[in-house]
Simulated scan of single mutants.
Amino acid sequence: MIILLRHGETEWNVARRIQGHQESRLTPLGERQARAMAGLAADLVAREPAAPAWRLVSSPLGRTRQTAEAVARRTGLPIEFDARVAEIACGEWEGRLRGEIAEAHPELFATREWFFAAPGGETYEDVAARIGGFLADLPPEAERRVIVVSHGIAGRVLRGLYAGLPRQAVLDLEVPQDAVFRLMGGQIDRFDCEPLEEEA
């Protein structure tokens, strides 16, 4: 079983700024999302037999570290960092507003393929290769107990590879910051957090 979650909302998510491998801290809402997703993950873990032991694996980027720390507090698991589940590198576009890239490249922004077109960035094949390597190194499904804290594009690709989806179906997957996915027995189930409101 894999329990997969995306990091909570970041300051750059709000600003619609391309993050890639750059750092942006969680917003107050993002911190609440992280705690809510951590609670869901802990509940899913508690439903399973004690053995085999669970692992908690996170992308090493700051926003996933913050989210993984919330999961660690709820589960008592130590965090392992693995760069293979980090977000796509967006090269020269990192730190720039989506709107300005969309204005310069309207044909790319008609689809989600723009993520893979950044000068100096990763391609779909690059991301799929490293995430595929991560999945290949996991134990067989019957012995697999891992919580993965990842990102939007990386999480899409991970779910797509697990389910054997074609590329366009992968790019169309939702990437919520208030839900947890359970990948088990060839099936993917989504568990949503209780609605979280902005604090006044």
Score class of each variant (00 low, 15 high):
residue 97 L to G: 07
residue 115 F to H: 15
residue 37 M to E: 04
residue 96 R to F: 05
residue 123 T to C: 03
residue 37 M to L: 03
residue 97 L to D: 02
residue 124 Y to R: 00
residue 73 R to C: 00
residue 80 E to Y: 04
residue 80 E to T: 14
residue 105 H to R: 10
residue 101 I to Y: 01
residue 105 H to T: 02
residue 72 A to F: 14
residue 119 P to R: 12
residue 88 I to F: 00
residue 59 S to K: 05
residue 118 A to L: 06
residue 85 V to H: 00
residue 36 A to Q: 04
residue 81 F to N: 00
residue 101 I to K: 02
residue 36 A to F: 05
residue 72 A to P: 10
residue 87 E to D: 13
residue 112 R to Y: 14
residue 37 M to I: 05
residue 85 V to E: 01
residue 109 F to M: 12
residue 31 E to H: 13
residue 69 E to Y: 02
residue 45 V to R: 02
residue 91 G to A: 11
residue 123 T to K: 01
residue 53 A to P: 10
residue 41 A to Q: 06
residue 72 A to V: 10
residue 58 S to Y: 07
residue 126 D to K: 02
residue 90 C to I: 04
residue 31 E to V: 10
residue 87 E to H: 14
residue 68 A to V: 07
residue 32 R to F: 06
residue 101 I to C: 09
residue 38 A to K: 02
residue 77 L to F: 09
residue 44 L to G: 08
residue 36 A to G: 12
residue 70 A to L: 12
residue 76 G to N: 02
residue 69 E to S: 08
residue 94 E to C: 11
residue 40 L to H: 06
residue 111 T to W: 12
residue 78 P to Q: 06
residue 103 E to Y: 08
residue 107 E to N: 02
residue 84 R to P: 01
residue 39 G to H: 05
residue 70 A to W: 00
residue 72 A to K: 05
residue 36 A to R: 00
residue 68 A to K: 04
residue 69 E to A: 11
residue 42 A to H: 01
residue 121 G to L: 03
residue 42 A to G: 02
residue 70 A to F: 06
residue 84 R to D: 09
residue 76 G to A: 07
residue 123 T to W: 06
residue 125 E to D: 15
residue 77 L to C: 06
residue 74 R to S: 10
residue 109 F to G: 05
residue 99 G to D: 10
residue 117 A to F: 01
residue 46 A to W: 14
residue 127 V to M: 01
residue 50 A to R: 14
residue 59 S to C: 09
residue 105 H to G: 03
residue 43 D to I: 03
residue 98 R to Q: 11
residue 104 A to H: 08
residue 31 E to N: 09
residue 29 L to M: 13
residue 127 V to Y: 02
residue 81 F to H: 13
residue 29 L to V: 14
residue 82 D to H: 08
residue 35 R to S: 14
residue 113 E to H: 06
residue 38 A to S: 13
residue 128 A to H: 13
residue 41 A to Y: 09
residue 45 V to W: 03
residue 106 P to F: 03
residue 128 A to K: 11
residue 123 T to G: 12
residue 55 R to C: 04
residue 100 E to T: 06
residue 84 R to L: 09
residue 43 D to P: 05
residue 47 R to T: 15
residue 35 R to T: 14
residue 55 R to D: 04
residue 116 F to H: 05
residue 89 A to W: 08
residue 43 D to R: 15
residue 31 E to F: 07
residue 29 L to C: 09
residue 35 R to M: 07
residue 58 S to F: 11
residue 66 Q to I: 00
residue 122 E to Q: 13
residue 78 P to E: 13
residue 102 A to R: 10
residue 118 A to V: 10
residue 116 F to C: 03
residue 94 E to M: 13
residue 125 E to N: 12
residue 96 R to T: 13
residue 41 A to F: 07
residue 107 E to L: 11
residue 126 D to R: 03
residue 94 E to G: 12
residue 49 P to F: 11
residue 113 E to K: 03
residue 66 Q to S: 13
residue 84 R to M: 09
residue 112 R to Q: 13
residue 123 T to P: 06
residue 82 D to A: 14
residue 67 T to C: 09
residue 93 W to P: 00
residue 67 T to A: 07
residue 39 G to P: 01
residue 52 P to S: 12
residue 130 R to S: 07
residue 106 P to R: 08
residue 117 A to H: 02
residue 49 P to D: 12
residue 64 T to C: 14
residue 58 S to V: 09
residue 80 E to S: 15
residue 50 A to W: 06
residue 33 Q to N: 06
residue 39 G to Y: 08
residue 48 E to N: 08
residue 92 E to I: 01
residue 93 W to H: 04
residue 118 A to F: 07
residue 65 R to P: 08
residue 69 E to V: 07
residue 72 A to E: 08
residue 45 V to L: 14
